[in-house]
Computed example of a mutant assay.
Amino acid sequence: MAAQLHDLLLWIHIPFGALSLILFWLPVGLPKGSPKHRTYGLYYFYCMWVVVVTALLLSICNLILNHYMAALYLGYLSIITAYPLWYSHEILKQGGEWSNRYFIVRKIFLAVLFASGIGMILMGGLKYHFLGMGTMMGFFGLLALPSGRDLFRRKAVAMQKEQRLKMHIQGTIISGIAAYTAFAAFGGSRILVGLLHFHHQWMIIPWILPTVLGIIYSRYMKRKYRAV
Rank of each mutant, 00 (worst) to 15 (best):
V50T: 09
N66Q: 08
G124E: 02
Y83N: 00
H129L: 10
Y83Q: 04
R101Y: 13
G125L: 09
L74Y: 01
G95Y: 09
R106F: 14
L21N: 05
Y44W: 13
G124R: 03
I208T: 11
G125P: 02
Y217F: 14
W86Y: 15
M1G: 07
N100I: 12
Y217P: 01
H6D: 09
S147N: 14
G148A: 13
L213M: 10
G141H: 01
I177T: 06
S78D: 08
I215C: 08
Q201S: 15
W25P: 01
V157W: 06
V157T: 09
Y220W: 14
H168S: 05
G95M: 07
S189V: 04
V52P: 01
G132H: 07
V157H: 07
L213Y: 01
G171S: 07
F130C: 08
G95H: 08
V105K: 15
L77E: 05
G95T: 12
M136W: 11
E97M: 08
I215G: 06
Q160P: 05
Y180V: 02
L131E: 13
S20M: 07
Y68M: 14
T172E: 11
G132I: 03
K93P: 03
V193R: 15
L113N: 12
I208Q: 01
G125W: 08
F198P: 06
P84A: 00
V53L: 15
H13W: 01
L145G: 00
A71D: 02
N62H: 11
W11F: 12
L8E: 11
K222H: 10
L21A: 13
L122R: 06
H37T: 06
V105D: 10
H168P: 01
Y102D: 01
G141E: 00
T211K: 03
A71R: 04
E90R: 15
K222N: 11
L92W: 06
V193Y: 07
H13I: 02
M69K: 13
Y217H: 10
P146D: 02
M48I: 07
G95Q: 13
H199F: 13
L110R: 11
S59Y: 01
R101C: 04
K161L: 14
Q201W: 11
P35H: 03
A18I: 14
M221W: 08
G17S: 05
M69F: 15
A82K: 02
W25D: 02
Y73F: 14
Q4P: 04
V51E: 00
G96H: 10
